[in-house]
Design a protein around this nucleic acid. Structure first.
Length: 474
DNA sequence: CTATGGCACGGATT
DNA sequence: AATCCGTGCCATAG
């Protein structure tokens, strides 16, 4: 399935069969959220898999007090003050910064109180005409897990033999009820409603509306430069707008309130999902050590059930093939998971050292890094790095959530330098003058490239740029 | 003649 | 193998 040279993986764990490698590769390119979903599916299907109690240390078996750190078995944080500390979290328990405290999580993982349709119906009941109640109930029962409406209002109208406007009115009520935006036909509509409602009580960024309407695809991919260009504003402004949207709006109104982890078939929007890695600083001092938390679902708490292994000896004739297949699949999954985690941890531990400046001080300090060079250092194939980097996000100490791919942006530092120069220019500089200035700062790029970066950042050509306020001079 | 945008090639990424 | 990104070359606008 994969060409031989693509199969070079982390040497830490000995590789094995082609199937093992192939599956590891495919797991590697999943984000934590997607992986968690996949494992959940396998867990409920495959009796050979089981989860060790995540509230006990998987090494020494002692109960854990805070999050996933076991006093005995956790990384020795006092060993090497200059090295980053990396830990792996098997669940979101330790996602302290992202958990809402009131989320009473039981052993089944989600709340069992009243369901979403009932909750919404109760709110809108007072404003609802009696004869519309069944329409509302029907609509609510057709929400998917994300709280979005999967059938068209027209279908509803036809079903009840009522005018479309009446259905629309009911939907309007639903959308304004508590998980605001619930019952919208798409994430985009949900966001627009939330923005509208929010705008009634507080100011919102002026570009947010257009950003959502026209730039959803860019927001999802964190393409802030293109978004800025689309909106005709600077990248910084686009970033601010996106941050506002991500922090204040929720594209899946059904999820926030009902923290069901399994999210349906809809693809999660990277910009909104939980990060795969969180990087923090130990203190505020400039020489502080970096604390890196890698979220790897079920890492080291998933195992092959010993009971199942025993039971297989006494398996009934007609089931034995099936059971064996399950057992093998389970063993494979566990191994692949270890391999995936090991690869990501190795990648991150190298990456945070190389990009320390960037992590602490921002875009301008990004060290241009290629996946190939990291691959060589870690002695894995470059496509392994590619996969490990793909579709993963990192939360930086400043709170920003960025794609891991940003760590490999070949030109970000140059672009930020470029932006700075232009912001500070006294009279519009031509592209070739910019090349000279950049070269003096240590960035050697072609004139043509400066033009492209300008375009990316949404900066106009020199003859169209702002007229200088102060006295101009050639 | 200078400043830019368009197109195509070659290395990097996926 | 297909695609993306930085560059060089060239045509065009001022």
């Amino acid at each position: 399935m994969y060409p031989a040279q693509h199969l070079r993986l982390s040497p830490q764990i000995r590789p094995l069969t082609t199937a093992h490698l192939a599956q590891t590769m495919s797991l590697l390119e999943l984000s934590a959220l997607e992986l968690e979903e996949k494992i959940n599916a396998e867990l409920s299907r495959n009796p050979a898999l089981e989860v060790i109690d995540p509230r006990r240390c998987h090494i020494c078996g002692q109960p854990l007090q805070n999050g996933s750190t076991c006093p005995r078995c956790s990384p020795k944080t006092d060993l090497n003050p200059s090295e980053p500390v990396i830990f792996v979290s098997p669940s979101r328990e330790s996602y302290s910064s992202h958990l809402s405290e009131d989320e009473a999580r039981d052993d089944d993982g989600f709340q069992v109180s009243e369901d979403l349709p009932t909750y919404v119906l109760r709110q809108i009941a007072p404003e609802l005409r009696i004869e519309d109640r069944s329409i509302a109930a029907f609509i609510l029962s057709n929400l998917n897990d994300d709280g979005l409406l999967e059938i068209s209002p027209l279908e509803v109208a036809q079903y009840f033999h009522v005018p479309l406007s009446r259905v629309a009115e009911v939907i309007r009520l639903i959308q304004r009820a508590d998980p605001i935006g619930v019952g919208s036909p798409s994430s985009k509509d949900a966001l627009l409603i939330q923005l509208d409602v929010l705008g009634e009580s507080r100011p919102v960024p002026e570009h947010a509306l257009r950003a959502i309407e026209e730039g959803m695809h860019l927001i999802n991919r964190n393409h802030n430069y293109e978004l800025g260009r689309l909106l005709g504003v600077s990248t910084k402004e686009a970033e601010d707008t996106v941050r506002f949207i991500i922090e204040n709006l929720n594209p899946f109104p059904g999820r926030a309130a009902w923290g069901d982890i399994r999210d349906g078939c809809s693809q999660p929007a990277p910009g909104f999902s939980t990060p795969d890695v969180i990087i923090k600083t130990e203190s505020n001092r400039p020489d502080a050590r970096l604390l890196v938390e890698v979220f790897s679902p079920y890492a080291s708490i998933l195992r092959v059930s010993p009971l199942f292994r025993q039971a297989i000896a006494k398996a009934p004739e007609e089931k034995i093939e099936h059971w064996k297949a399950d057992l093998e699949q389970a063993e494979l999954l566990v191994k692949c998971l270890q391999q995936r985690t090991a690869t990501i941890v190795r990648l991150m531990s190298r990456l945070v050292v190389l990009q320390r400046q960037f992590i602490l001080f921002g875009d301008g300090y990004l060290f241009p890094l290629t996946r190939a060079s990291i691959a060589e250092e870690l002695e894995v194939h470059e496509s392994t790095i590619s996969r490990a980097v793909a579709s993963k996000t990192v939360e930086l100490p400043n709170g920003r959530i960025v794609p891991l791919a940003k760590f490999f942006d070949r030109s970000l530092n140059v672009r930020t330098a470029l932006k700075q120069i232009i912001e500070q220019e006294t009279c519009p500089l031509s592209d070739s003058e910019l090349v000279d200035i950049l070269k003096r700062k240590g960035f050697t790029v072609a004139r043509r490239t400066v033009a492209k970066y300008r375009a990316m950042e949404g900066i106009l050509p020199s003859h169209l740029r702002r007229i200088t306020p102060a006295g101009a001079q050639p």
